[in-house]
Structure formats: C-alpha cells, structure tokens
Design a protein around this nucleic acid. Structure first.
Lengths: 356, 356
DNA sequence: ATGAAAGCGCTAACAC
DNA sequence: GTGTTAGCGCTTTCAT
C-alpha cells in the first residue's frame, strides 16, 4: 500500500536545550572569544585549539544565534523580495515566480535567506516597509505597480548602506527610471512591444485590441506604449483596451464579447502569455481562426507557450535571469561593501510562432 | 514617451540615523521601559504619557530593532517555507507557487514574514536546517521528496515549542504519515487518482502510461499508486512510466516516442497539468486525436486547464488552500501557545473535461 | 594566540 | 503608573 511506502518520519527537534557560545567555551575549556574566532575564521590559532573547539561545537550541536549576531553586527544574511500591490494571490503570477526562482537560486549557496513580503498599502514609502525600516534584511528587491510606488513619494533615492543607519541596498525591478542613483533592473518591454507591433502590422493586421490585468505595472504600461507608438507610426491605433484579472479564464471572459462586438478585430495583444491563452480560447469559441482571422500574442514566453495549439507568438522576457541578477547585485554590494549603482536592461526577444 | 510617464522615484532611505528606544525615551522624557510598554501595549498608563511617547516615536521615525527583540523574546514573527529538493528552479513549479501564495496571504495582515529556503542536501535532518536550528523562524512549513526526508532520519517527531529550546512548530506538507504527533497537511491524491482511473476505465481505456517529473514526491507517488491499484482491480496495468523534467516541453519530448512506439496506448496520465500539456502536444504531433484515440489527463487543475484545447480532464488539488491552512495552523500555535496536532487531508476532485 | 570587559537594543522582574 | 536593574548571545576592543 502506498500509505506505508510513504510513511516518512521526520525528526523535528532534538531534545537538548539550545546551547550557547558560553556552553561551547566551557565544554572546550577555552574562552568565549575563541569560539567566536573559530566560527568566523577570524584569527590565527593553534590547530589543537581549533580542533577542540570544533569538536565541542559538534558535540553540543551548537548553532550561532542569528538574532544576537544580527544585533551585534547589524546584518541578517537575509534579503527581501517585496511586491507592492494590493491584490490577493499575487504570487500566483508566473512572472514573479520566475523572478523568485532566480533570486532563490542566487541566494541558495551563499547562505542567504529570502524574506517575502507583500505590501498592501500603496502609500507606504519604501523605507517604511517593515523589513527594510526595521533592519530585518540586508537588502531588498522591490517591484510593484508604478502609481503605487510613485504616488507622493519624495524623489530622493540612494542605495548606500551605512552600518550605522537604516540605509539598505535596493534593486528596483521593472520600474523605468532615469535617476542614475537608483539601482534598477528592467526588461526592454517597450522595444519588445515595438518589434511585436511591427511584426503584426507586417502581416497585415490593422485592428488591434490589448488585454491586460489589474494594476498599473510599469512593464505592462511599457508594452502598451510600445504597441501604440508603433501603431501610430502607421496611422493605426489600438481601439480596444480591456482589463481583467490576471488569469486566463478572466481574459477569455473579457475578450469573447469583444470579438463578438467587433468582427473586424484581427490582432489581440495580451499583456502576458497567460492572458493570451484566454484570448486564444475566446477566438476558438467565437469561431475565429487563429492566425487566419485573428492573431493572438503574448508576452513573457512562459513554458507552456510552445505546447499549446497554436503555439504562441510572444515576446520573451527573462524573468529568471532578472531575479538572479537582482540578487547578485545586492549580494555583491553586501559582500564588497559597495558596488556601482547600475541600471541593467535585459533585452527582450520577439518569438514568432503559429498564433500570428 | 513612456519613459517619462514611468519615471517613478522611490525614496529608499531617510537620512537620519536609526533611533533606539533610549532616544525615544529621552525625547519623550520618560524611561526606556515606558516606551517598551507603549509599543507592546503591555500595561495601563496615563493617556498623557502614552500620547507623548507616541509622538516621540513618530517624530524620530522609530522602529523597534527586530534582532534585539528576537534575542530577548526568542521569536521573530517569521515563518519558513522549506523545500527539500536538490533541483534548480524549484520555485517555477506551479503547485508550490499556489502553496506559497496561500501562505503569504495568511501571513500578510498578521505582520508575519515568510522566509523561503531550499535545502539542497537531502540528508540534512530537518532540525538542522539553518532557519529552524538557528531559531530564525517561529515555525516552518516543510515539503520535499519523500526519500529525501526519510533517509536515515530518526523517527521521533514532535511539534512542541518551548521558549527555552529549539523546538519549533512544523507543518509537513504532502507527506503521508501515520504518526499522530506530526502535524501534516496532504491532499487525497490517492483517492483522486483512483477516481480518475475509474473514470478512464469506464470510458474504455485499457493501455495506460504515466508521465512524471524528477524526484520522489510523495504526492506523485500517491497518484501513481492510486492509478496502479485501480488498474489492477480491473486486471489492467500501467505499462509505461516515464520520467522527465517538470516542464511541458520535456513531457512532450518524453511522450512523443512513447506514442510512436505504442500505437495502442489510449490513456496518458500525467502527474500534473503542466506535463499533461506536453502530452497533449505529443498526441497532436503524433497524429492521435484526443480524446478519441488517446485520453490525456493531469493533476492539480491549474488555471490554464480550462483554456487549452481540448480542455483538460484533471484532478483538482487545492494548493492555495493547503498553504493557507498550513500557515494558519502554525500561526494558531504561535499565538495561542499550543494547538492540537492535526493531520488535515484535503479532498481532491475529479474534473472531467474534454481530454478524456 | 588567547582572555576579559563592554555593550549592541530590547524586555522581564521587580522596586518604588 | 513609572523607573531601575539585569541579561538575552554575540562581537569588538583592548589587554595579556
């Protein structure tokens, strides 16, 4: 029976009280300071002492107390990933999951932890977000809706970190800025959208709709802006912009009536692949052939995009790499004490498949 | 230009040194202890004092130091989500993302943070996982491959928490156990698989294949076990079990040759919806009609399952609710001091759509 | 190379 | 109701 083969037993606790450095010191017959030195590999010491200490540590199952350490050296070996957005279930968003995966992979071997926090209140200035203001983390990666971050906030920006202050290195994700003091990572959504629009126009599309989800995500606004700009170049326009929840079924519900109301619609540009999936279903239900009658495109190039029918034309956005890079930038800062503030832009790539 | 409209400025730091309780106390002309009392709402005090203190806190932009607090009261207002699995990009897995979303939503308003940690080394006993052993978190939600958790670990389990020790409340996810002292949350994968198998057999399917990803995930093993058990009941068997990466393209690559090699195959049971998507593509490419020639089914009921063509028959597993419940169980424990150790089983539901 | 003392910011325990 | 004292576990500074 499966029940048995899966009867996994898990050891949760050891029944020894948590031992401190003092315990280890006594056990090894040395001073507390020596223990600290061994653990931090700080000074030269006799091999004999070092070994004795290490054995004592093992025998007592000693682990340094991170709070005490954090209190003393004002660092926590923890980074934060903060999403400023009032929506529930924000983590179901696949793009953020890619970013998250990248961050986690970067942190994994360096003994850093990741603190995830959603900030519901759009009006909280970043430096007042709990993990940052309180010094719970050594750095933070922040993303969110642009209005949210922008509303009434002072323009001053800095990423310097002082041991004595609350300054914390920050990387802002997907927030276009011209301020050279802000460390930011964004993808070339605008250019990606431009390329996509050129492609669609090149294939003779003339009546466009744009579907996107809730919130004023800068990346999404850039996608729309690139689309509209390019359309304008050809004296075209995107006459239909619909908003729905960030899930395929919602996109389906939103696009279907659009299709019924506008028989001439021949291009549906979705803000990401998930919504494109819903648009694809809408086209199917409405009896419109893709790509013959109507083109459907996405953004992001999620894993499923090659496997659906028709395979989805999309603009690849490297979420995993962006997350990874963000984490590495902060880690570099934390490790080396300082790094050049940079604004990294990841290229996007138009991937033409069968839906256009 | 979009660049301008998105020129969001973010205040990262205030240029005041981090103030302590002592500063606030001096500023308000009271003792440190009084500040502490105000912050923790601990004792009765004159309205005048309380207001004066609160104003001082505001004026100085004071925030309690979490390390000092953690050191003193041995708690951190932080929970951990730990995945014991050696794979990279583990967070791209959609089921875990649902769980994560549930956890985050539960924690959000209670001022708890979530620490995410992947444990690469399958042989690390749970109580030695950094965040737990070090007391970085007040509780943990753990999931992972069964072999990983089971290998050579002592069977003793407990979820008691003592202020003075390293004991930490734990909820084990998707790990079937009969040990009543372990707090676990699982879905009825076995029953779900049984129902699915009955359904497929009822529709005349006789030649089965099972596709799954890397790792010995208990949930996946339960799905396979339920399938095989039911097949056996009807003197059938699942003759093809293929393993691939946990992404649709990999499933496609794995299933396509299977389909070519076995023309009589008439049911492909994928371990989750993502793999089912790949199987669907394989069927298409191999020229097999779904569901006429071959049935394809998934597990989990991810959002995309209703939007693909054909809509996917699947077994719904409530990942979001499971994560949410896990977090709430721990929170209840932390808040109230103790809770009944329980083993929660979430029902699964067969959802028959068009792919079977 | 090792040890002793001081103190990080906070709260528990007790005095007033 | 409010203040004082002590100490959580660790690292920094200085002495040996």
């Amino acid at each position: 029976m499966l029940g048995q083969s899966l009867n996994v037993q898990v050891a949760i606790t050891e029944d020894h009280p948590m031992s401190t450095m003092r315990d280890v010191a006594e056990h090894a017959g040395v001073s507390i300071q020596t223990i600290s030195n061994v653990i931090n590999g700080r000074v030269q010491m006799s091999e004999a002492t070092r070994l004795r200490v290490q054995r004592a540590i093992e025998e007592l199952g000693y682990t340094p107390n991170p709070h005490a350490r954090g209190l003393r050296q004002r660092s926590s070996n923890t980074l934060a990933f903060i999403v400023v957005d009032p929506a529930e279930r924000f983590l179901t968003d696949e793009f953020h999951d890619l970013v998250l995966a990248g961050i986690c992979d970067a942190l994994r071997d360096r003994n850093y932890s990741l603190l995830i926090q959603q900030s519901l209140n759009p009006y909280t200035p970043l430096y007042e977000l709990p993990p940052i203001s309180a010094g719970k983390v050594d750095g933070a990666i922040v993303t969110g809706s642009s209005h949210v971050l922008g509303a009434g906030k002072p323009p001053a920006t800095t990423v310097t970190r002082r041991k004595t202050g609350t300054h914390v290195p920050l990387v802002i994700l997907e927030q276009h800025t011209t301020d050279p003091s802000v460390c930011s990572i964004e993808a070339e959504n605008y250019n990606g959208a431009t390329a996509l629009a050129e492609h669609l126009i090149g294939r003779g599309r003339t009546r466009f709709a744009f579907v996107h989800g809730m919130g004023n995500w800068p990346a999404v606004e850039a996608r729309l802006a690139g689309l509209e700009k390019t359309l304008a170049k050809y004296a075209l326009s995107c006459d239909h912009i619909v908003t729905c929840a960030w899930d395929p079924e919602a996109a389906y519900q939103a696009v279907l009536p659009l299709l019924h109301a506008h028989p001439q619609l021949d291009a549906i540009v979705a803000a990401n692949d998930v919504l494109a999936l819903g648009a694809l279903k809408a086209a199917r239900v409405a009896g419109r052939k893709v790509p013959d009658d109507v083109a459907v495109t996405g953004f992001d190039d999620f894993a499923f995009s090659t496997c659906i029918e028709p395979a989805l034309t999309t603009v690849k956005v490297p979420g995993y790499e962006m997350g990874r890079t963000a984490a590495e930038m902060i880690l570099a800062h934390v490790t080396s004490g300082s790094f050049a503030v940079q604004q990294v832009r990841f290229p996007t790539a138009l991937i033409v498949r069968d839906s256009s």
